[in-house]
């Protein structure tokens, strides 16, 4: 059992406070949806948790199975079991996915030679052309292909907790289903994945079936509840929470 525990997290970008006390716990096998309007600080939360340059933590803690994430460089946070599926996966010309995943395996003391077969299997599961694995990372991929690629990487790396930042943007219906089914499979079983799905729309949630929904605004969680919150949001919009 793993748990990501975020407690009273405050952060700034430059001088501007963006996160104003985020408290949230995600455990193995749970699917949490974090929903909020544009500019509410959702993506900042994922960047702060992952340690991106330019974001400054001004208070609070974030731990994964007791490990203080905020004191680690990004790659060690990933090695601790945290995964970020990017909203806009970065194109890295000349670098092949297989080499990146092999390097991540090697750094974790796992056998990099397992990577090619895992990649092939996972590509088939999510309907991602195997040939993409040998091409430059995210270069010339469509929005949907990039998100399938993110899901493939998640499946090969087998993190404990995954943050999915707007995973549904750029995905067509088929790709959305394929990705959601793979994530569902990952959230069950003995080494179940915990998911924090950051999203603007409810589209992903119809496929992903979250246990808990958080409404996010002004850099903190305004209300948490079950899936019924999504229905309320559909009816009233964010204006019910955010003036």
């Amino acid at each position: 059992m793993s748990e990501l525990v975020i407690d009273q997290l405050h952060a700034t970008v430059g001088e501007t406070p963006i996160l104003n006390g985020v408290t949230l716990t995600v455990r193995s096998g749970e699917v949490h949806a974090l929903m909020g309007p544009n500019g509410s600080g959702k993506s900042t939360l994922s960047n702060v948790l992952m340690g991106r340059t330019g974001y400054h933590v001004t208070g609070g803690t974030a731990t994964l199975d007791g490990v203080d994430l905020l004191g680690l460089p990004t790659w060690e946070r990933a090695q601790a079991g945290l995964f970020l599926a990017s909203q806009y996966p970065t194109e890295v010309p000349g670098v092949q996915l297989a080499d990146v995943l092999a390097a991540a395996y090697a750094a974790a003391g796992r056998d990099p030679e397992l990577v090619p077969e895992l990649m092939r299997d996972e590509a088939d599961v999510i309907g991602f052309d195997r040939a993409f694995a040998g091409r430059d990372l995210n270069v010339d991929l469509s929005g949907g292909e990039k998100k399938r690629n993110e899901t493939l990487q998640l499946a090969v790396l087998q993190p404990r907790i995954a943050i999915l930042d707007e995973l549904d943007s750029g995905l067509d219906v088929d790709a959305l289903r394929a990705v959601a089914r793979r994530l569902e499979a990952a959230t069950s079983g003995p080494a179940a994945l915990g998911v924090l799905a950051i999203t603007h729309y409810s589209r992903l949630l119809q496929e992903l079936h979250p246990d808990t929904v958080h409404i996010f605004g002004h850099g903190r969680i305004l209300e948490s509840g079950g899936p019924e919150l999504v229905d309320r949001l559909e009816g009233q919009g964010y204006s019910a929470w955010v003036a």
């Binding site: 992952m50 991106r52 340059t53 460089p73 990004t74 790659w75 990933a78 090695q79 995964f83 970020l84 990017s86 996966p89 970065t90 194109e91 890295v92 010309p93 000349g94 670098v95 080499d99 990146v100 995943l101 390097a103 991540a104 750094a107 974790a108 430059d136 990372l137 990487q153 790396l157």
Partner: peptide
């Protein structure tokens, strides 16, 4: 490129290895 390095780091690739991969990729063309 800081974004490229960050992306590889989020996969668990140590910073120096990430830079080496990016530079090798840069010369690949």
């Amino acid at each position: 490129d800081a974004d490229q390095r960050f992306y590889l780091e989020t996969r668990g690739v140590p910073t120096e290895v990430a830079e080496r991969l990016i530079v090798a990729g840069f010369f690949d063309e």
